[in-house]
Design a protein around this nucleic acid. Structure first.
Length: 263
DNA sequence: ATGGTTGCTTTGCAA
């Protein structure tokens, strides 16, 4: 079972890249972020033609997440609980049937949080607290759970080519990193870190300043696994080559393989 | 070096 996450930075601008990547990577479940589209305008027919079921949680202009799955959805839940006033589309959960029972997969787009002296930073930290509470409740189910997405958090200095340039940024502020550590402390495994160690693997390179050419990257796209999912961890790969494509997203896909089968 | 790039809500905003 291959489960991937990719911030595609606009599904309408990226549809050719998305279809090409789905064809070559063939994930069983793909978690997309920043579709920047309302549900009605998501190019679902083109994706369905490749054998995927499509569930979206979109909004006009920005944010928006989606789940694409070769498996039938048993259940879909939109929105992160804990704040009825939160209108931003950043969270969608799908439930699937496997040979080991229910598998839960979340596509999440955590708030960026910049600038830190605006209301955006407390919104980010509040969102992370809600994610922690939600995760703690889900972990009690003792099921395979994959929390995949753009966390907008650089967990450690090793996750940036130039960590000194990120000091003070919402992605690297102590409060953001602490909240990420609290999430891990619940018992979640950072899959890419577990497989690769601290060896400078990145998932995002800014469009500006020749960041890609200089490998000035950061690792902010993460797949967090419950113990029941981590027990089945086979491999994690970063599809770095997509960053060199025409009209690339500034993020690249991360692909997780679990020793689970659909049923 | 107060810049640089991309996508959408477009001549501003969010990333």
């Amino acid at each position: 079972m291959k489960i991937a996450t990719w911030n595609i930075n606009g599904v309408k601008a990226r549809i050719d890249n998305l279809l090409h990547w789905l064809g070559e990577a063939s994930p069983d479940i793909a978690c997309l972020q920043e579709i920047k589209s309302v549900d009605e305008q998501f190019p679902r027919e083109a994706v369905e033609a490749l054998g995927y079921h499509v569930e979206t949680h979109g909004q006009k202009g920005f944010n928006g997440v989606a789940l694409l799955s070769k498996l039938r959805f048993d259940e879909v839940n939109r929105g992160l609980p804990g704040d009825d006033g939160d209108e931003q589309a950043r969270f969608i959960e799908g439930v699937f049937s496997t040979n080991r029972g229910a598998l839960r997969v979340v596509s999440l787009y955590l708030p960026n949080g910049n600038p830190v002296d605006s209301e955006k930073f407390p919104y980010k930290l509040g969102w992370m607290k809600r994610l922690e509470l939600w995760s703690a409740a889900r972990l009690k189910l003792e099921e395979p759970l994959v929390l995949a997405g753009d966390y907008n958090v650089i967990p450690e200095p090793e996750d940036a080519r130039h960590p000194e340039a990120w000091v003070g940024d919402a992605l690297f502020r102590p409060e953001s990193r602490q909240a990420f550590r609290r999430l891990k402390g619940l018992g979640l495994t950072d899959a890419l870190r577990a497989v690769n160690g601290d060896d400078g693997v990145y998932t995002f390179w800014d469009y500006q300043g020749g960041a890609w050419q200089k490998n000035n990257g950061i690792r902010i796209d993460h797949l967090m696994l419950s113990p029941e999912a981590a027990d089945h961890l086979v491999s994690v790969a970063v599809d770095k080559h997509t960053r060199a494509w025409e009209k690339p997203s500034d993020h690249v896909p991360v692909v997780l393989e679990l020793d689970l089968e659909q049923s």
